[in-house]
């Protein structure tokens, strides 16, 4: 036996910094992603920048993946994270869709 089973596994000392940094980056990249999508839709940025937006979303996923591995997540947390990431992907698009719809309706 390799010692007791921990349901909250011990985090390596050297892992704390990467964990905190990646957890912050998840949301920071997320904000970049949502921000760039919005700016493109508002035509403040060229369409091309959408690639950059998705690139940030991929970075966000990577950070999330990295975080969930580093904290030795159980399947549940992994699923929760996947749901959250999917929500992030969709949310700016949904927002913008709603904005256009409501403008069509109320501005004319």
């Amino acid at each position: 036996m390799s010692g007791p089973l921990y349901v909250r596994p011990i985090i390596e000392l050297n892992d704390f910094l990467p964990i905190f940094v990646s957890a912050s980056l998840i949301l920071i990249f997320g904000a970049f992603y949502a921000g760039i999508v919005t700016l493109v839709k508002m035509q403040k940025l060229k369409k091309l920048y959408m690639f950059l937006a998705y690139f940030f979303w991929i970075l966000q996923i990577y950070c999330t993946y990295f975080l969930t591995m580093k904290i030795h997540s159980q399947p549940f947390t992994v699923k929760a994270m996947m749901i959250a990431m999917f929500a992030y992907l969709m949310v700016p698009h949904i927002y913008y869709y709603l904005i256009t719809k409501s403008e069509e309706r109320y501005e004319k």
Partner: peptide, 16 residues
């Protein structure tokens, strides 16, 4: 984990 989502939304809304 979902709590920051509306916060991002509110930020973008103000800027927009």
């Amino acid at each position: 984990s979902l709590e920051p989502l509306p916060l991002i939304g509110m930020f973008i809304h103000v800027l927009y």
